[in-house]
Computed example of a mutant assay.
Amino acid sequence: MESFTEKTVKQEYIYKGKIIDLSIHDVVLPDGNPGKREIVSHPGAVAVLAVTEDEKIVLVNQYRKPLEKVIAEIPAGKLEKGEEPLECAKRELEEETGFLADKWTAISSFYTSPGFADEIIYLFLAEDLKPGQVHTDEDEFVECVKVTLGEALELMKNNIIHDAKTIIALQYLQLRNQMR
């Protein structure tokens, strides 16, 4: 695999933002030729598959400007500098849904778009839910809903659930239910 490595010889930041940074890398390709790579840097995020005692999945409806539409998603959010993924997951679940969880399970982590971004999402299962307090960010507007797995799959079929993290979480839940 070492033969596929690209060496960065120059890096120029084009944009440094609140959520992402964009840089251009001049690289030496595995065959020795020069190349350029546009890289989006992101601090990472968490996503929470929260399941109630009666097997309902907690989703949030949120307008996503890049898509110009509202989609239903599992609760998620960006890691703060130095924050552990589990602590972030606990914070985001309560902030967006008003739920706390007594039982947490790390499911997996995955890169969202490894062709141009380094964003990694840590996916957790939250169970044994109890009421907490909603306190979304000042620029965050969400509506919390609870749906069955069947209803969630129907939302996915109709492109209302239309993001990778939620689809991965639903597939995990389907597999878990099949193995019981």
Rank of each mutant, 00 (worst) to 15 (best):
K90T: 00
L175N: 13
S109E: 12
M156L: 15
L125I: 02
D21A: 11
E119N: 10
V58A: 06
Y13R: 07
K65N: 05
A164L: 14
A50P: 08
Q133H: 14
A101T: 12
I168S: 04
Y15F: 15
S41Q: 10
Y111R: 14
E55S: 14
L93N: 06
P85G: 04
G17N: 06
E2F: 14
L93S: 01
I167A: 14
G150A: 12
H135C: 09
I121Y: 04
M1H: 15
I160M: 09
K103R: 12
V142S: 01
C88F: 00
I74S: 02
D102Q: 13
L170G: 10
E83A: 06
D26Y: 12
I161G: 01
T5K: 13
R180E: 12
F4A: 13
N177E: 13
I14L: 15
Q11V: 09
F124M: 04
D31K: 07
A101R: 03
H162M: 07
V58F: 05
D118H: 03
P43M: 11
K90N: 04
E92T: 01
H162P: 00
F99H: 07
V28P: 07
I71W: 07
E92H: 06
G35S: 13
I71A: 05
M179R: 13
E127F: 00
A50F: 06
E84W: 03
Q178E: 14
A45Y: 00
E38T: 14
T166Q: 03
E87F: 08
F124R: 07
Y15P: 01
L49Y: 01
D26W: 10
E38D: 09
E87P: 00
T52H: 02
I39K: 09
L129C: 04
L100R: 15
H25Y: 14
Q133A: 13
D137L: 12
V27N: 07
S41D: 11
E12G: 00
N177V: 06
V46M: 03
E12P: 00
K103M: 07
S23P: 00
L153W: 09
V145N: 08
V46I: 08
E68W: 03
E84I: 02
Y122D: 05
L173R: 03
T148E: 11
E38S: 13
A50L: 09
E38F: 15
E87S: 10
E92M: 06
V58W: 05
A89Q: 01
E83K: 05
I24G: 07
E84S: 05
F110R: 03
H25F: 10
H42S: 10
D31P: 04
K56C: 02
E143S: 11
K18H: 11
G32I: 07
Y111W: 07
P43K: 08
Y63T: 06
E73N: 09
A126K: 07
R91G: 02
N177L: 15
Q62T: 08
L29F: 01
L155D: 00
A117R: 14
D102H: 13
V134K: 15
K10E: 08
T5Y: 10
D31S: 08
G17S: 05
V27L: 10
P75V: 00
G115F: 12
D118L: 02
I14K: 15
M179F: 05
K18T: 13
A89E: 01
Q133T: 14
E138G: 01
K56P: 01
D54L: 02
K81Y: 13
I161Y: 02
G115T: 10
E73V: 10
L129W: 02
H25P: 03
T112L: 09
E94L: 03
